[in-house]
Design a protein around this nucleic acid. Structure first.
Length: 424
RNA sequence: GGAGAGAUGGCUGAGUGGUCGAAAGCACAUCUUUGCUAAAGAUGCGUAGCCUUACCGCUACCGAGGGUUCGAAUCCCUCUCUCUCCGCCA
């Protein structure tokens, strides 16, 4: 959520920066300002009336003690009460309306965020490694995983429908090995605390991280219990500190957590959904940081490097791109995507998206800290990035390490977890 | 699922209709004094909003939401959560 004070003070600046996303927010900001002004007028009036009522009610109390008749003055206060109800309803309605609009408003891209209209204009920041050469025609992960019996695509469809898969045998073990490798790397080498969190969350958590109210159709919901399946561990992990004033010496807080992720992917069916590249359920290790405003952008660089380390250790070629203003996510102010090379796709797959949300999420979940020597609390900055998504990492691994005889080599870093040098 | 108890400021914990935003203690901050790895005293110390250049001031908040009343932490209703016991269960 944006700061209403900032919108009031620098509306043109806010409009300019939001409009860089490629949508015109001019009229929305004007509407917010108009509602805000009406709201404050009503609020001031209400408070004045409440003040009157408090004062007179106290006088009544005193008069009654002295045995005086107060019926006339009580009638007067009753009238004030009626007016408080009226003006109060108006103020509350305006407040709700203002909040609803504010919750639907995206974050402002950072000033340094590259301006662009779409993903076409995302600049490449750096690359690591190179595309592997094959002496044979490389296969894609679908045929590799099927012929080696690692993944049963039909079984996934049978029990849950399309875009669900079943890992079997060595295939299931490979997924488990990757998970352990990732969690161990981040917790022992990068200083993250491992957390295992619920996979079902209350709606307010999703409001906190920004998925609600706007992206309700992308989520699986358990209607009867009013709980949602998490689309990413970002939601429960960041919300661990919702409504808190965290101690300054605890910052930065760094969490690594594995969870499955559930996404309905409404409207995403069709192109690019074959195999295991886009699924309704996939595993992911997520990195989350809660920091002070001063350090968040440096922490973003570190977080991205932590995610890159995964691909480096596994020997997978990748590139890092920065998302331009037209492609950046709803709550983010700056985002790096890490894309791994998948030979069977002849293309790059996004395995991590590392973002700094500034205080956008912190405002929504009221997450603050009190700086040393300051009286006022300040909103924290929140960051997260995949470290990394498992399914696409799995794809890149199979396709990169496939051998001429159809087997899959296991990179050395993963062997202590997989307990074998190859599959097949 | 059944029965009971509870929810007050960073913590402990008073407060059952009228200067209660809330006693007291602890913790914390500043200062003073005595001194030496501490003690005593003084003062301050919740959050948010409105109004203000600022100061001042005002309003709301005692789990949440309604209600009664001139006036609610306090009375009534609904809900949520926590704890204890029973049942069921991986």
């Amino acid at each position: 959520m944006l700061d209403i004070q900032l919108i009031r003070k620098q509306p043109d600046d806010v409009k300019r920066r939001l409009n860089q996303r490629g949508t015109d927010y001019t009229s929305v900001i004007d509407e917010i300002l108009s509602i805000d002004e009406q709201r404050r007028l009503a609020e001031t009036e209400r408070q004045k009336l409440q003040s009157d009522r408090n004062r007179i009610s106290k006088e009544i109390g005193i008069a009654k003690k002295n045995g005086q008749d107060t019926s006339a003055i009580e009638a007067e206060v009753r009238g004030i009460g009626t007016r408080i109800d009226e003006i109060g309803r108006e103020a509350d309605a305006l407040d709700v309306r203002q909040r609803d609009i504010m919750l639907g408003l995206p974050n402002m891209p950072h000033e340094a965020c590259p301006v662009g209209a779409s993903s076409e204009e995302n600049p490449e920041v750096r690359t690591w490694g190179s595309k592997p050469d094959f002496t044979f025609q490389p296969k894609d992960h679908i045929s590799l995983a099927t012929s080696l019996g690692l993944i049963d695509f039909e079984a996934g469809i049978k029990i849950s429908g399309s875009a669900f898969i079943v890992y079997r045998g060595q295939g299931a073990k490979l997924e488990r090995a990757l998970l352990n490798f990732l969690l161990d790397l981040h917790t022992t080498q990068h200083g993250y605390t491992e957390v295992a969190v619920p996979h079902l969350v209350k709606p307010e958590c999703l409001v906190g991280t920004g998925q609600l109210p706007k992206f309700d159709d992308q989520l699986y919901k358990c209607e009867r219990d009013n709980l949602y399946l998490i689309p990413t561990a970002e939601v429960p992990v960041t919300n661990l500190h919702r409504e808190e004033i965290v101690a300054t010496d605890k910052l930065p807080i760094k969490y690594a957590g594995y969870t499955p992720c559930f996404r309905s992917e409404a409207g995403a069916a069709g192109v690019g959904t074959r195999g295991m590249i886009r699924m309704h359920q996939f595993d992911k290790v997520e990195l989350v940081k809660i920091t002070t405003p001063e350090t968040s952008f440096a922490e973003l660089e570190d977080l991205t490097a932590d995610a890159e380390k995964v691909l480096q250790l596994l020997g997978l070629h990748y590139r890092v791109i920065e998302l331009c203003t037209g492609d950046i996510g709803f709550g983010s102010t700056k985002t790096y995507d890490i894309e791994v090379w998948a030979p069977g796709q002849n293309g790059y797959l996004e395995v991590s998206s590392c973002s700094n949300f500034g205080n956008f999420q912190a405002r929504r979940m009221n997450l603050r800290y009190k700086p040393e020597g300051e009286k006022k609390t300040v909103f924290c900055h929140t960051l997260n990035g995949s470290g990394t998504a498992l399914a696409r990492l799995y794809v890149a691994l199979l396709e990169t390490y496939q051998q001429a005889d159809g087997s899959i080599a296991i990179p050395p870093a993963l062997q202590p977890y997989f307990h074998a040098e190859k599959i097949g």
